[in-house]
Amino acid sequence: MTSNAYSRRPARLDVAVTLEVFVDAPIEKVFDFLAAEDVLPKILTGYGLVPGVVSTSDISGPWDQPGSHRVVHLADGSTVNEGVTEYDRPSYFAYRVSDPNFALKHLMDGARGQFWFAPAKGGTNVKWTYTFRAKNSFVKLPLTLFVKTQWKGYMNVCLGNVLKHFAHF
């Protein structure tokens, strides 16, 4: 990851969305599926203006190790860097996203994704928060509109794909 701007900008520039879902599967299976190195093309299939993930490359190390990073390739030919920041199986993992080479590069300095997993009767509760950091206060409004409409829809499709995956078991 080449940019550390996310951590240097004030929190007032954050734009976040959180979704929660119940998955009818044991916590370890849900965690291992969502935190897997090869999962992105299976679940991030696209929504509205947000293209799906087609592949990843340049993986620097084991995906269960903080500090490992990769390049994520999107269906429109664009890329973004992603790196593991925390990994605590089976309860939590987090990652940082930076250096998009598509339109969001004008609005964001970076983003942080976080997943929490909690055992629940008959399955697992999953909470996913995605926090974008706006480049400045002038672009926070358009970034907020994008996050609340397009990105939230993208996250909903992703979690729907997770539910479909576990419905087959």
Results as ranks from 00 to 15, higher is better:
1 M>R: 08
2 T>K: 08
4 N>L: 10
6 Y>L: 04
7 S>Y: 03
8 R>A: 15
9 R>Y: 15
11 A>M: 11
11 A>Q: 14
12 R>N: 13
12 R>W: 13
12 R>F: 08
12 R>I: 15
13 L>K: 12
13 L>I: 12
14 D>L: 05
14 D>H: 11
15 V>R: 11
17 V>I: 15
18 T>V: 07
21 V>A: 11
22 F>E: 00
22 F>C: 08
23 V>C: 09
23 V>F: 09
27 I>K: 07
27 I>D: 06
27 I>F: 06
28 E>Q: 13
30 V>D: 03
31 F>A: 02
31 F>Y: 09
32 D>S: 15
32 D>A: 14
33 F>L: 02
33 F>D: 00
34 L>E: 05
36 A>L: 10
37 E>H: 13
38 D>N: 11
39 V>L: 05
41 P>N: 06
42 K>H: 11
43 I>P: 07
44 L>N: 14
44 L>Q: 11
44 L>A: 13
45 T>L: 03
47 Y>N: 10
47 Y>F: 10
47 Y>C: 00
48 G>P: 01
51 P>G: 01
55 S>A: 09
57 S>F: 02
58 D>I: 03
58 D>S: 04
60 S>A: 01
60 S>E: 08
61 G>L: 00
61 G>T: 04
61 G>H: 01
63 W>G: 02
64 D>N: 13
67 G>Y: 10
67 G>E: 10
68 S>Y: 02
69 H>P: 01
72 V>R: 00
72 V>D: 04
73 H>W: 02
77 G>C: 06
77 G>K: 04
78 S>M: 04
79 T>G: 07
80 V>D: 02
83 G>K: 14
85 T>W: 07
87 Y>E: 12
88 D>V: 09
88 D>R: 14
88 D>E: 14
89 R>K: 11
91 S>T: 10
91 S>P: 01
96 R>N: 10
96 R>D: 02
99 D>I: 08
99 D>G: 03
100 P>S: 09
101 N>E: 08
101 N>Y: 02
101 N>T: 00
101 N>I: 05
102 F>R: 05
103 A>L: 10
104 L>V: 04
104 L>F: 12
105 K>E: 05
108 M>T: 12
108 M>S: 04
108 M>F: 01
110 G>M: 04
110 G>L: 00
111 A>H: 01
114 Q>L: 01
115 F>M: 09
115 F>C: 00
116 W>Q: 06
117 F>L: 10
117 F>P: 07
120 A>G: 11
125 N>C: 08
127 K>E: 11
128 W>L: 08
128 W>I: 05
129 T>P: 06
132 F>P: 00
132 F>W: 07
132 F>Y: 05
134 A>K: 03
136 N>I: 00
138 F>R: 06
139 V>Y: 09
140 K>R: 13
141 L>S: 07
142 P>M: 13
142 P>T: 12
144 T>L: 14
144 T>V: 06
145 L>P: 11
148 K>A: 02
149 T>E: 00
149 T>S: 09
150 Q>E: 14
151 W>S: 13
152 K>R: 15
152 K>Y: 15
153 G>F: 04
153 G>W: 02
157 V>L: 05
159 L>P: 04
162 V>E: 14
162 V>R: 15
165 H>N: 12
166 F>D: 09
168 H>L: 13
